[in-house]
Design a protein around this nucleic acid. Sequence first.
DNA 1: ATCATTGTAATCAAAAAGGTTACAACGATT
DNA 2: AATCGTTGTAACCTTTTTGATTACAATGAT
Lengths: 138, 138
Amino acid sequence: MQFSSRFTIATHILVCVCVFENEVKVTSNFLASSIQVNPVIVRNLLGLLSDAGLVEVKAGVGGTFLAKPAEDITLLDIFKAVEKEESLFHFHENPNPQCPVGKNIHAIMDKRIDDIQSAMESQMAQTTLAQLAEGVDK
Amino acid sequence: MQFSSRFTIATHILVCVCVFENEVKVTSNFLASSIQVNPVIVRNLLGLLSDAGLVEVKAGVGGTFLAKPAEDITLLDIFKAVEKEESLFHFHENPNPQCPVGKNIHAIMDKRIDDIQSAMESQMAQTTLAQLAEGVDK
DNA sequence: ATCATTGTAATCAAAAAGGTTACAACGATT
DNA sequence: AATCGTTGTAACCTTTTTGATTACAATGAT
């Protein structure tokens, strides 16, 4: 199991936008050639990032801009924008209610699983796009 | 993206073994009927848990036992036993080295990604099998 | 009106997940 | 040594997801 590359690609997109938005027109083709994936994949991800209020995409004329300051965009924002699953964990659906363990397994695990997901999300919230963009050596 | 149900099923297996190992013979069929999945799936997971040194499975005669005290088995041990991916995140393979962002994206993100995975794993290590088994109401 | 660009639908291939059948190997019991 | 329930594993199948690609209507500045 791994996260799809949507998260790392979306992050790559946002770093590019942050670094280049005032220098060149950041089109899906520009982004696609930096990431080396198909431009349609970029456009679909831009749609998700736009829905999440992270970027503004200029239809027709082209070009993408940050919709808010890079200091206010975290890895958690990006993750939530592109990974739509509510829960990280996939429970087996039908544990046997006749069995004491099957009957209680959800009650036993749900809180622990929430805590694990929260720990991950808290750490994601620690990194901002501004910090990432600082690491780009032009 | 979600983790496969291997993790929750494997945890269910271990809770069952912990609770029942001294009462009944814990076979793959017994476990399968508590979880309500195919016995072969249980046997495959038991193989992984056995490889990881968490359980001992009696071939031939049948039955599964914990290989160490329930206090010494954590959710992280279970997770690592059944999810073999080294990294949680899947990087796009070929960022463009001609682009300042493409060239640096790994250097920028690798540490952050490690921190996120570490945060998740640390939280997983906080819960022991013994704690989970306490929650079973027989 | 033109033209580069975006938004999106329609496909397609590859990989992964989950399930199932089948059967050889095992090992205690008789 | 034959039996019998069980484990270990191979083979196969379906469904879902991911990632990729082509195609084209809609957009909006010029």
